[in-house]
């Protein structure tokens, strides 16, 4: 039981760390997809089937596509940027900050006694129950999320669209 969890954790953390360290943006984007798929596997392990499939559908299917298109649309020269001392010192500072946060969090988790029943079977939440919850007590939140998504996507299209046709005439 715990072995599966540890394997999934190694997959998630390994792919995330390597993705953030790579120079090739496409490779790191694809590794991020692997990381998201690992998180979906974690949700499956925890028994949250619906969330796992939603994660795959949205992250692996949609967000990854947006990221890959963005990488291709903003491609710079193929030569990788050199590792200058400025970015190195920033990396060290980031590592110190991240390590500090990690130390505090791990210490807090290991130091806290958790009296939860771990022996119980995984809880099951059917799709029907989730739907009932969404349409009942959380209907307002559902409406707001729908509105948010519509506005966000319209805004994204407006921002990313070519907005100044007269400039292209100048260029040509």
């Amino acid at each position: 039981m715990n072995l599966a969890l540890i394997l999934i954790s190694v997959l998630i953390l390994g792919s995330a760390a390597v993705a953030l360290a790579l120079r090739n943006l496409i490779h790191s984007a694809l590794l991020f997809v692997g990381c998201w798929a690992g998180i979906a596997a974690f949700y499956l392990w925890a028994g949250a089937e619906f969330v796992a499939f939603a994660q795959v559908l949205i992250y692996v299917g949609a967000v990854s596509m947006v990221v890959l298109f963005a990488v291709l649309l903003t491609r710079q020269s193929d030569a990788a940027e050199p590792m200058n001392p400025d970015s190195f010192s920033r990396f060290m500072r980031a590592l110190v900050a991240g390590g500090g946060v990690a130390g505090i969090l791990v210490g807090a988790i290991l130091g806290t006694p958790m009296d939860v029943s771990t022996a119980g079977p995984a809880p099951t939440l059917t799709v029907k129950e989730i739907g009932g919850q969404l349409m009942g007590p959380h209907a307002a939140a559902l409406l707001i999320v729908g509105l948010l998504l519509t506005v966000a996507l319209l805004g994204a299209v407006v921002i990313a669209a070519v907005d100044r046709p007269e400039k292209s005439e100048d260029a040509s």
Binding site: A54, V56, G61, S64, M65
Partner: peptide
């Protein structure tokens, strides 16, 4: 089904 299908885009 649709989650597995959308992964082929990748």
């Amino acid at each position: 089904f649709f989650a597995a299908g959308s992964a082929t885009e990748l």
